[in-house]
Write a protein that binds this DNA or RNA. Structure first.
Length: 271
DNA sequence: CACGATACCTGTAAGC
DNA sequence: TGCTTACAGGTATCGT
């Protein structure tokens, strides 16, 4: 489940193999993911030196010495495999480095994407220009959130999933942050009180920070880039815990559907 | 413009 | 065991 912490973990893992490396070749094993791979991707990356890696929201960045950046999104099911024994039907893009490492972008559902963007204009690239602030940065504050949510009638859960409000949260960490802050996910975003928002902002930063520390979260088939399994399971308080006791009050965790997606929450603790 | 519904695609697990 | 259905980490787009 690639939300922000998983992408951050992925980028850090990739950096061990790619930062400073020369890409011997990049090969495509099909023509598209959610969209076609960009024109000229193979030529742009093959032979290029990787000058750094980064992340914006849920997007991973591979910067090259040629002034272009490969921007990848993992969608729902994407992950990078490091030194795969053999390539499977979902290994759609492969990078081989001059030092002999092989990395593959594997995405069974193909909701992910790959783009090629001029590095100097990354911030004004339309996809990035539309994003809200990074939740772990100083710009994301109580005053930012207050202003962004003012007058909004949609549920706070929905608003936090909107990448224009804050960029990088997904279904899991929104549920977890709202639990920590004691906020009912159905509450109209514009009516969440200032004290509640003052709890929510640090709750978001804390839950993301802890997940990054834990090495990304830990659903089912999600693995760190090198494929190593068995990193510590981060325990969720509410996500996917319908019917189980609330860690704070013991009441059973409830599940509702908002915008076609499940929301888990404690009806007693979250008002 | 704000908001909700739907589409995209495949794998897995649950139910019958 | 086999078939069918529901659901899954996200985002873009199309209605109303």
């Amino acid at each position: 489940m690639p939300e922000l912490p998983e992408v951050e973990t992925t980028v850090r893992g990739l950096a061990r193999y790619l930062d400073g490396a020369r890409i011997e070749r990049l090969t495509l094993r099909r023509a598209d993911l959610r969209r076609p791979f960009p024109e000229g991707l193979v030529q742009a990356m093959s032979g290029a030196e990787v000058t750094g890696l980064g992340r914006r929201a849920k997007y991973g960045l591979i910067h090259t010495g040629r002034g272009t950046t490969l921007v990848f999104h993992l969608g729902m099911s994407g992950r990078w495999r490091i030194e795969p024994e053999e390539l499977g039907k979902h290994d759609h893009l492969v990078i081989e480095t001059a030092s002999g490492h092989r990395l593959s972008l594997c995405d069974p559902r193909r909701f992910g994407s790959v783009d090629l963007v001029d590095t100097v204009t990354l911030d004004s690239w339309p996809t990035f220009a539309a994003l809200g602030p990074e939740p772990l940065g100083d710009v994301f504050s109580v005053s930012h959130l207050t202003a962004a949510l003012a007058g909004r009638a949609a549920a706070i859960k929905q608003m936090l999933l909107d990448q224009r409000i804050v960029a990088g949260l997904g279904n899991i960490y929104v549920c977890e942050a709202l639990f920590r802050a004691g906020i009912n996910p159905c509450k109209a975003a514009g009516k969440v009180t200032r004290p509640a928002l003052a709890r929510l902002v640090p709750a978001i930063k804390d839950v993301l920070g802890e997940a990054i520390e834990a090495g990304g979260s830990t659903l089912r088939d999600y693995a760190q880039p090198d494929g190593q399994l068995g990193y510590f399971s981060k325990r969720f308080d509410v996500y996917d815990r319908e019917g189980q006791p609330c860690s704070r009050c013991g009441a059973p965790i409830g599940r509702i559907v908002q915008g076609g997606r499940s929301t888990w929450f404690c009806q007693k603790c979250q008002k």
